[in-house]
Design a binder for these strands. Structure first.
Length: 276
DNA sequence: CAAGTTACCTGACGGC
DNA sequence: TGCCGTCAGGTAACTT
């Protein structure tokens, strides 16, 4: 479900609700997510802590506590976090709840349980390369995410360009939707092998990845079936999809029929006329 | 090493 | 109505 724009939208939505609040209770459904929930640690370490800030790194939401420790959440495919009245009923697939001193509650809901939650002590969090982000590539908006970097990183490999930009060790945050959308805008076919891309191709791709992600954040993310922000509102970037899920429809640019092809096990969409 | 495959989960949908 | 296969925004652990 959530790629970088959706995680960023949730992070921004949560921040004003959480910053400065104290966690007074912790609840857990008892079910494991992708990894076991460190419930006993959370209970010990989070209760009574004040929230300093909420930030995003890759597709992770980081809740920083005043003590310097970090509560980190990954939303997987179907995860979502939102703010609810503490008195409201929990719903099916709620897995974690942090009760706050203003009577509200932060809840993590995740139907498929592909998400994960992590706790880093202040000293672990301070180590720049904590285990979680040790192998993570640059953020798409970082200067280090450059045409030179991609050209060089691609040099001793030969997968398709779509698989390459979806690899978190190469660059973080780009998932199945925004990979297809960025490649369409850069006029590069997703099946192209990376050793065939020129520096100009990489440069165009970077520009369009940034444009698409930025636009999607401004639109509040993409809501396909169930994405909601921290205030339970839909995003509307799906209105701006040019190719994702549009196989059989006419290309908005040239009227050719948009194709669907499975690449690396993931549905991929492109215009074979516009994208070479 | 890189690249390809499988596994983790629930639910929606289409075909029979 | 229900049973079955397929698919879904992610990613790590396998195997080849």
């Amino acid at each position: 479900m959530p790629e970088l724009p959706e995680v960023e939208v949730i992070t921004r939505g949560l921040r004003p609700h959480l910053k400065g609040k104290t966690i007074i209770s912790i609840w857990h459904s008892g079910k494991h997510l992708r990894t076991p929930v460190p419930y006993e640690i959370l209970r010990k370490k989070l209760r009574g802590e004040k929230i300093a800030d909420v930030t995003r790194r890759a597709k992770y939401i980081q809740i920083a506590l005043n003590s310097g420790s970090l509560f980190i959440v990954h939303l997987g495919m179907t995860g979502n976090m939102g703010i609810f009245p503490g008195s409201s009923r929990k719903t099916k697939h709620d897995h974690i709840e942090l009760g706050l001193d203003d009577g509200k509650a932060l809840r993590l809901n995740d139907v498929r349980r592909f998400g994960s939650v992590h706790f880093l002590s202040a000293s672990d969090a301070q180590q720049k390369e904590s285990t979680i982000f040790k192998t993570a590539g640059p953020e798409p908006f970082d200067d280090s995410f450059s045409a030179d970097y991609l050209y060089k990183t691609a040099s001793n490999r030969n997968i398709t360009v779509k698989q390459f930009i979806m690899t978190s060790q190469v660059v973080v945050g780009i998932g199945n939707i925004y990979a297809s959308e960025s490649l369409f805008r850069a006029r590069i076919r997703p099946t192209r092998k990376i050793n065939s891309l020129t520096k100009k191709n990489w440069s165009d791709l970077i520009d369009n990845i940034r444009k698409v992600l930025k636009h999607a954040i401004e639109c509040g993310g993409s809501t396909i079936s169930d994405f909601l922000n921290a205030n339970q509102e839909s995003g509307y970037f799906q209105m701006n999809f040019k190719v994702y899920g549009k196989n059989g429809e006419k290309c908005s640019c040239c009227s050719s029929i948009i194709k669907k092809e499975v690449i690396g096990g993931r549905a991929s969409f492109f215009c074979s006329n516009c994208q070479k």
